[in-house]
Design a protein around this nucleic acid. Sequence first.
RNA 1: CGCGGGGAAGUGUAACGGAUGCACGGCGGGCUCAUAAUCCGCAGGCAGGGGGUUCGACUCCCCCACCCGCAA
Length: 311
Amino acid sequence: MKHRLVIFGSSAFGLPAFSVMAKHPAMEVVGVISQPDRPQGRHHELTPTPVSAWARESSLPLWQFPSLQESAIQERLAALRPDIALVAAYGLILPSAVLSIPSRGCINIHGSLLPRHRGASPIAAAIAEGDAMAGISYMLMDAGVDTGPVIHKYALPLHADITHPELEQALSDLAGKTIQTAIDGWLDGTYVPVAQDNQLATRCSRLTKEDGRAHWDSGRRLSRLIRAYTPWPGVWTEWNGQAIKLLAATYEATTPTAKPGTVVQLEQRRWGIMCGDGIIVPSLVQFPGKKPQPAATVPGSYPTFIGTQLN
RNA sequence: CGCGGGGAAGUGUAACGGAUGCACGGCGGGCUCAUAAUCCGCAGGCAGGGGGUUCGACUCCCCCACCCGCAA
């Protein structure tokens, strides 16, 4: 007898794992729940979520509820009589009334090694904090945010210059490779959910544009933030009232020779921005309305930029 | 029709209704034990496509396709 499975997801992060479960011989996907198509992009075209698109292509039953708070919607979910719910990057809170619907519970794939980086931006947080290891956690959801018992974790070493898109892809793939083992192990009792140690927990909230504003106190941290926040929300600074994105940069530890935020000409033809603990040397930047451009072309393009004092 | 910006050498960008300049890159040469450093020189742009205004358009106007920022 197959397990009746409901999938909750919106962004592409969960797709590899979802695809595996959709083919799992012991699973029957009785519903895919995603967010509604929303106006997106440059001309606000109605765009389906990657999970919605996948469900349609795979001919799986799809529902795009705007919220899960209404009792009418909760009743429809209950009518699917799910045994298990699998949640990954869904983007909406599952109220306890929904969490209690599947007879065997709701499993979340979280992009960190819990209890570290509970919350909405675990991948960015791992890079921003300079963690040595990242990973995914299969967790039995409870009413808190990423606080439930952990079924199993899979770790991945982080190399020093990994970027957010690279890590997100790696973790997404890792979930695809491990989910069958994790779920099967949980179902047959090999993996027993273990409560998290709240003492070790850290939180990361949803990122905003303002989180990406560059601060020049620490170039070491700034170089990590550039890798963690690009492409969204990006790390940027203001010049002449315009936001300039720093898309890639390296950090060089030196004794500051100017006020932090000063754009300085370096030896050779390079330039950098002075920080409190050294200098940040951009390699790729983007001016508003423009495409990304190699940093070396900036002095010729914007001669007055060098020497500027940035905030 | 969400708001706005942009298209010129391999890359990026300035100015301008009437000789397209600059930076990086490339190529050649000097210096040097050597060099990604530095100095000198060379090449490379029919200015997205189509109309229009004009004695004359890269520069002004309209249309088409494309790219980007904001916002989501």
